[in-house]
Write a protein that binds this DNA or RNA. Structure first.
Lengths: 116, 116
DNA sequence: TTGCATAGGGATAAATAATTCCCTATTGTA
DNA sequence: TACAATAGGGAATTATTTATCCCTATGCAA
């Protein structure tokens, strides 16, 4: 998310949450961090379909939005750990609900997504 | 969503729900239909920031994914009505949770989104 | 008869998002 | 010494999504 030409909509709760949660991998990042995968390389391995680059970028945005915090250990080779902030933690039940809905409807969803 | 070059990920519930809910206006469309705004022109007026075109496209995808159904009345001028399917209805509590989280954290979210 | 409301599609342009490839640096291991 | 793992940024390119503009059609009201 760099400068936008199209003005932001921040009119309602759905606009607001959209601003911080849009991004192909953000919800999964939050979820995996919550599950205890805190280092960039671990997250990378959990989400092999995403490019390293995008994960870095989206992690940085999550950090700017105060959903995760980042600790850089001054060692070599470098060590970095992410964790959910208290604020980020409040999203976990909602993300769980999203994932559950997807799991519960797996059959049907695969059908309608792929049928086209 | 036309042909994709990048393969779909349908590994977990989060992937699946992402496939049907991604799209800038889809969640809002579902919500407004749930609130009783069923005609395309009404939805348009509720979401003036979206172009007519995209709303049509996203409504069509929601229909293909069986979250909404569409009735075309054979009259002139044309009349069309959308409604949530039973399947789509099961998303409403989750969408409500998303919206509530956004509303409850309005201050903070506006801050972190705009501070940059 | 002009204009508006209805619904929606095609073509194209613009904006945004994500990928790919290549670069820096350090330490430990084969 | 060469290579892997660690973390991450720059540039360029591709993919995807959304917006803009223009078109069709019908019926009603001023």
């Amino acid at each position: 998310m760099r400068e936008k030409k199209i003005p932001l909509n921040l009119n309602c709760g759905l606009d607001l949450i959209g601003e911080v949660l849009y991004g192909k991998w953000k919800i999964r990042l939050l979820w995996f961090i919550h599950e205890g995968y805190r280092r960039p390389s671990e997250l990378q391995r959990k989400i092999p379909d995403a490019s390293r680059r995008v994960l870095n970028i989206q992690l940085k945005e999550l950090e700017q939005h105060e959903l995760v915090s980042k600790i850089i250990y001054p060692v070599a080779p470098p060590k970095v750990e992410f964790s959910l902030t208290d604020f980020g933690m409040t999203l976990i039940p909602i993300i769980a609900a999203l994932g559950n809905w997807g799991d519960e409807n797996e059959e049907r969803l695969k059908n309608v997504i792929l049928k086209r």
